[in-house]
């Protein structure tokens, strides 16, 4: 089957000089043993550009009955009388790939959709709607606590006793229309220790590997650290332009123990003719 591959005109000036003078190189036909035929043609387009056309054909031999074989050697006639042997690209083109779309029976097609809708209907407002004020299953605008003092507080029974009383604390609460950043909510000081420590836990499973050679890739790194345990995240610092490794990487392990093991084992380990230095990753803000 023919696969026409139109090519851009040659950009090299040397080639252009060669072609100048109007003489186009003769078309060539190469036939390879594996049944591939490549026909190269040169022609001048309407805009005066010289174009090289390379067409690749696969030559196939088929055994057919005599009558068909006889018809195959018939001379072309009519509009095709001047066509060369083989398909003329002006009349025969290979179309884009199309796929047969198989249709499962119509009842089945409709079912899943209906089921989905039914499920949603069965759920009602329960899980679809959540009040931003109190977390209840109704629209925020219809919240029964809307106009009370509790509006904006998370769950009415939760944090309230924890928050210290007094007018000062009340004004700090994330109520009304004023946005309060999370770090300041419930009295900024309170947050610094407890919850933040917990949140940074994943940082504590992160290790930093330095002194990697610039040919290191993410797969190499993965192979290096995989034996220690499951990995949550892997980051290899790469140069934006060259795509080469910048010499360090961060690995987030799922478990702290694995991370500790990796540090103990890999720190000072020789890798790619370099000695790795591995340590806990420092938290972002302290850098």
């Amino acid at each position: 089957m023919p696969v026409p591959v139109p090519e851009e005109p040659k950009s090299s000036w040397a080639d252009e000089v060669e072609l100048e003078g109007g003489a186009l190189p003769p078309s060539t036909t190469e036939v390879f043993d594996n049944g591939i035929k490549i026909v190269t043609e040169y022609k001048v387009t309407e805009e005066g550009k010289k174009v090289k056309i390379v067409r690749t054909y696969r030559v196939e031999k088929r055994i057919v009955s005599k009558s068909i074989a006889l018809r195959k050697i018939w001379k072309k006639f009519g509009e095709s009388a001047n066509d060369k042997p083989g398909p003329n690209p002006a009349t025969t083109i290979v179309g884009e790939d199309v796929y047969m779309q198989f249709i499962s029976s119509k009842e089945e097609d409709n079912k899943p959709e209906d089921e989905g809708i039914d499920k949603l209907k069965a759920l009602g407002d329960k899980n679809v709607v959540k009040c931003r004020n109190c977390g209840g299953d109704h629209w925020t605008s219809k919240c029964p606590w809307k106009d009370t003092i509790l509006a904006g507080g998370k769950l009415p029974d939760d944090k309230k006793p924890a928050a210290p009383g007094g007018p000062g604390a009340e004004s700090n609460k994330p109520g009304g229309s004023k946005y309060v950043p999370p770090s300041l909510r419930d009295g900024g000081a309170k947050r610094t220790d407890g919850p933040n420590m917990a949140r940074r836990d994943d940082n504590y499973c992160a290790i930093r590997i330095a002194n990697l050679s610039d040919s290191t890739t993410e797969t190499d790194l993965e192979e290096l650290v995989k034996p220690f345990g499951p990995i949550h995240k892997l980051y290899l610092a790469k140069d934006k332009q060259t795509g080469l490794c910048k010499g360090f990487a961060y690995i987030h392990f799922k478990f702290k123990n694995d991370a500790a093991k990796a540090i103990a084992r890999l720190n000072g380990h020789g890798y790619d003719h370099l000695i790795l230095s591995v340590d806990w990753s420092k938290p972002m803000n302290s850098q």
Binding site: M1, R62, F77, G78, A81, P87, N88, T91
Partner: peptide, 13 residues
């Protein structure tokens, strides 16, 4: 047309 490769054998004018 040849149905195998889509080559036009000719037209009846």
């Amino acid at each position: 047309w040849y149905s195998l490769n889509g080559e036009r054998l000719g037209s009846f004018n």
